[in-house]
Structures are given as C-alpha cells and as structure tokens.
C-alpha cells in the first residue's frame, strides 16, 4: 500500500506532468511514426519521469519530459535496428538520402497550396533525423530555441542550423509533391 509521501508525490506529478500528455504523445507519434509504439513510449516516458521526479528541478516541465521521451525513443530505434523486419521501413538511416535535395533557392517565391493535416504530417514524417525532431519541437510543440537545446542536449547554434535545414527540406519536398500532382 502506497505511503502518504508517495501519494503526495504522485499528486504533484499528476498536476505537473499530465497536462503535457498531448504534447508528449504528439512528439512520440512523429518520432516513431506508429500509434501503438508511441503509446508504449509515452507510458514508459511517464514512468521514468515519475521515478526521477524527485530530482527534477525545473524550470520547464515540457523540455524535461521531451528529453526523457527522446531517450525512450532512441531505445526503440535500437530495438528496431536489431529486428530484421523493421529495417526496411526505417527512414533516416544515413544511407537513405531523401529523394529531394536541398535546392538553391530560386529567386521567385512560389506560394504553397494549403494541404490537409494528414498530407502535411506525411511530409514531416519523411524528414530525416535529427532535423525532424527539431522541426516538430519548434513548429508543433512550440518550444523556444533554448528549450529545444535543453531537450535534445545540443547547443542553440546546432538547433538553429538543424531547424533551417529541416524547413528547407520540408519546403522542397512539399514543392516536389505539388510539382508531381500537377
């Protein structure tokens, strides 16, 4: 039977961490590209977060949870790399260069057509790591550069260059698809 301390800690944890469940789940969906893997990873993330909650000193809960989730997801990547079946549909491996390349920007600006969320999610899913996670943390999870640096354990300068590259790749892929559908 849990003691009073455990119950109080659980309650504090509930109030601090559970409001970000959708955020953590969103990142997990983009990182793992699979709904049930994402659920498992998020649950594991919250278990670990509770375990380390005593040593949590803030200030921001969201980047802290994201950092834990990344570790969980990296373990999942490692597992997939060992499992034969998973290899083929794992993108972002170094040898798999995306079919679009970052192009020299053409001076004329084409306006992108609005797309439904599902199509955009697919484009984001196809981005290679670590560019995808930087992009999702900034554009979808609304973290500041400093918070992203905290969550991924990289300097702010690295975050900036990854983000620039992620956006360039996404836009190129987006335009390539529009070209294709014409």
């Amino acid at each position: 039977m849990p003691g009073t301390d455990d119950l109080q800690k659980a309650q504090r944890f509930r109030e601090a961490a559970l409001p970000y469940l959708d955020d953590v789940y969103t990142l997990a969906r983009y990182l793992l590209r699979d709904a049930s893997d994402a659920e498992d990873a998020v649950q594991e993330c919250y278990l670990r977060a509770l375990k380390h909650f005593d040593s949590y000193r803030g200030p921001a809960m969201k980047p802290w949870l994201f950092a834990i989730l990344r570790n969980v997801c990296n373990a999942e990547y490692a597992r997939r790399a060992h499992s034969h079946a998973a290899i083929e549909d794992t993108p972002g491996a170094a040898e798999q260069t995306p079919m679009w390349q970052e192009t020299e920007a053409s001076p004329e600006t084409e306006v992108l057509r609005s797309r439904d969320a599902g199509a955009i999610r697919k484009l984001i899913d196809a981005l290679a790591e670590p560019f995808k996670e930087t992009f999702v943390l900034r554009e979808i999870n609304n973290l500041s550069y400093r918070e992203i640096a905290e969550a991924v354990g990289a300097p702010v300068g690295t975050v900036m260059s990854r983000l620039a590259r992620a956006r360039a790749m996404l836009r190129a892929a987006w335009m390539a698809e529009e070209e294709h559908s014409r």
Partner: peptide, 24 residues
C-alpha cells in the same frame, strides 16, 4: 500554411488511463 493545419495529435483516453493506473 503550417499554422493553419492542426498537426498535433491527441493522446487516446486509454493511454491516459494506463498512465493514471501506473501512478500510486
């Protein structure tokens, strides 16, 4: 264009319940 689209996911209720159940 990105800000017009809803790119977030919503955690399923059963996930919330699973996490709740794992707390003391």
């Amino acid at each position: 264009v990105l800000s017009d689209a809803n790119l977030r996911y919503t955690a399923p209720d059963r996930l919330r319940a699973r996490i709740e159940a794992s707390l003391p």
